[in-house]
Design a protein around this nucleic acid. Structure first.
Lengths: 230, 230
DNA sequence: TTACTATTGTCGCAATATGCGACAATAATC
DNA sequence: GATTATTGTCGCATATTGCGACAATAGTAA
């Protein structure tokens, strides 16, 4: 975290979404001894591509690796600048605010979102944070700075893009039932979808491969399992 | 242009689109005595919102004021960093590279696009530039740094958003014929549209107000004039 | 075995949207 | 009054979408 290694005034924040049960979850970090909640974020090194910085920083802070990230907006209002919270974090971790004065300056933040398979991930908090966990998207704590606004904009962008980008691809396990896929779409869109219509549309896309049936032991017809083609 | 007044490492670039005849035009600046072409861009002041900086900077550099700007991507690759071209510009304008050393550092650039009424605008070049003029979108000169890539991404985003955002609103004069509106859509999408289908769709949106006919003096039926509601 | 339940795969129909050609209306000219 | 170019609109064929219905089926209960 040497000051000279990072570009001043530039940060990134990431909205990491996963799916569990019927709900969208989001990855939130909590800082040691501060009660402050925040999106996983970080800084850009002097000789590092912005997109690479996000991948690196996210791995350092959460242990997440090799995920699909989509840039969606850059937040640059002056009101973002709240050195108090950053100072609180630094002090709570025993860092002198002199050495890290650059972190107390105003930042413009490039925001990314990602969709990952909730089951496959055990996020690991880094040294600055005492937890790194999943929260219900509709039951978030108050987050630092403008992070709640960033989350809302990420969700809006995701909904707008759901038909154009292959949303489920990253969020789903290797194989899944049509009903599971539908629940993901419903969670993202925040509305229910007619079962027949959804099935017809998904099959019509030609991107699903049908496998054997999944016998759940329940007293009803067993659903097929699917995976994404290629 | 005092160094201390601006955030280091952060810039913006703008893709200003207008329409003339059958073609999309884009506003390009040419720097004095350098042969360098570039998008109108600028920097962000210490105590200034990013979006405000873009409006201010665009006015300073081109004379354009009060236009609809949409942020679409932030470019942060290391290869963007080409201090040679910036140095060329500074020297050609008689500035010492020492005083402006901060401008030779690496920049991350937040890009915006805008649609404006070509007829209503007479762009004015600023002190650094000897021209500020319209170029055909499909016949651009080679631009500085990654500015050609920025233009392409702006066009792609514009096409993706053409049905969701009220594209024509800013690009059209106060009143216009259906054929004129169609030409704008065709220029943006880069493909021709069936006349009847387009008319039906536009009228179906319920956002056009029909006025008197426009008599051109030509030997055929006169078209209605329209304006956008509200 | 047989009835029953919950869920799945699929279909049909209505409503809506889209691509494309055709036809009548019309402003100016010959 | 005929001709020409262009416009407003419509009809039809073809997708797309919302919604209900029906048969199939895996297990449970009688």
């Amino acid at each position: 975290m040497e000051p000279k290694n990072y570009l001043r005034h530039i940060a990134f924040d990431s909205v990491i979404l996963g799916f569990s049960g019927d709900k969208l979850k989001i990855l939130i970090m909590k800082y040691h001894n501060t009660g402050l909640y925040a999106l996983p974020g970080g800084f850009v090194k002097m000789e590092e591509n912005l997109n690479d910085a996000v991948r690196r920083g996210l791995k350092e802070r959460t242990g997440l690796d090799n995920i699909y990230l989509e840039q969606f907006y850059t937040f640059g209002d002056v009101q973002r600048y709240q050195p108090e919270s950053m100072q609180t974090i630094l002090l709570a971790n025993g860092n002198s605010t002199e050495q890290y004065a650059w972190m107390l300056e105003r930042f413009i933040s490039v925001a990314y979102y990602a969709l990952i398979d909730y089951e496959k991930v055990v996020p690991q908090p880094d040294a600055l944070s005492d937890s790194c966990g999943w929260y219900d998207i509709d039951n978030l704590p108050a987050l630092m700075q403008d992070h709640n606004e960033i989350v809302n904009k990420a969700l809006q962008t995701l909904r707008d893009n759901i038909d154009r980008k292959l949303v489920g691809f990253n969020l789903m396990p290797l194989v899944f039932t049509m009903k599971e896929l539908q629940k993901v779409y419903e969670a993202i869109l925040g509305e229910s979808i007619h079962r027949g219509t959804f099935q017809r549309k998904m099959l019509g896309l030609g991107i699903l491969k049908r496998h054997d049936k999944q016998y759940s032991g329940k007293a009803h017809k067993a659903p097929f399992l699917y995976s994404f083609e290629k």
